[in-house]
Write a protein that binds this DNA or RNA. Structure first.
Lengths: 132, 132
DNA sequence: CACGTATATACGCGATAGAGTATATACAAA
DNA sequence: TTTGTATATACTCTATCGCGTATATACGTG
């Protein structure tokens, strides 16, 4: 599997990562708390480990998995190129997040606003709302 | 297509987003600069617009696409839960990012670094190495 | 050693995404 | 209107993903 983005595209994998965010866990614990089948958990963990998101240590028959930071930072690095851009739109953003029922406890940068509208003369119509 | 993560999982879409990061562009410009076929560009733009990553205005026969900030922030919000975790590992992280430059489809990381094996019975060990 | 537990892997299946080709639509200029 | 340009969509094909089922492997205990 290619990039870190493809890795975190899978909802169950994101759940696993979030779960491991609190503390390291065994496969069985993950299986139980997330209500996924054991093979499914193992396979996702395999993908996550190959991608560097997690690492494991052996404890008797158990494997304890925990997060590794690097791939997250890679995502963050990609996201960084858009930060300056969205910082001017935080208000609209909050509406958006509220609407989706997401909790946003982030700590983003509030800074300048560079809303550069460069529309020209009206041509004829507007029809901007294409099918949604 | 479900989440924002699935949207940005596609490499061509990430390229489009990065390109639009500099300034708004028409389909033709994207097609040319990224060397993708026109239908491919249009379809990706459709996906991106449906997901709220971009919006378009009409300029004669052209459509000018530009970024919208909300979905990026959504990704950022998810990432936030891991920030406190990786901040302790910045040094290792930088090595990681340096090393991987930008190569795709690479997961060569030898994840078997500190595998604390505590078994004692020699049982006929099979390749614990992750076959990939 | 046999057994139970914990985890990993193999295999087949159904769903779906992305690309290519062809065509449809919108608009402008002649 | 006809033609040319710019973009969107329909359709088909192929590859891959994620799951379930079944089995293999590893380990501790009796």
């Amino acid at each position: 599997m290619g990039s870190v983005f493809e890795i975190i595209a899978e909802p169950n994998r994101r759940s696993i990562l979030s779960l491991l965010g609190s503390s390291e866990k065994s496969v069985g614990e993950i299986e139980q708390q997330l209500r996924m089948s054991q093979p499914t958990v193992s396979k996702h963990l395999r993908v996550l480990r190959d991608a560097g998101f997690v690492e494991s240590t052996v404890d008797a028959q158990r494997r304890l998995y925990r997060l590794k930071p690097e791939p997250f930072q890679e995502v963050d690095a990609w996201l960084a190129q858009f930060r300056r851009f969205w910082s001017a739109h935080i208000d609209a953003l909050e509406r958006h997040l509220d609407r989706m029922g997401h909790s946003r406890d982030d700590q983003s940068t509030p800074t300048e606003k560079n809303t550069i509208r460069k529309r020209r003369g009206p041509k004829r119509e507007k029809g901007k709302g294409e099918t949604k």
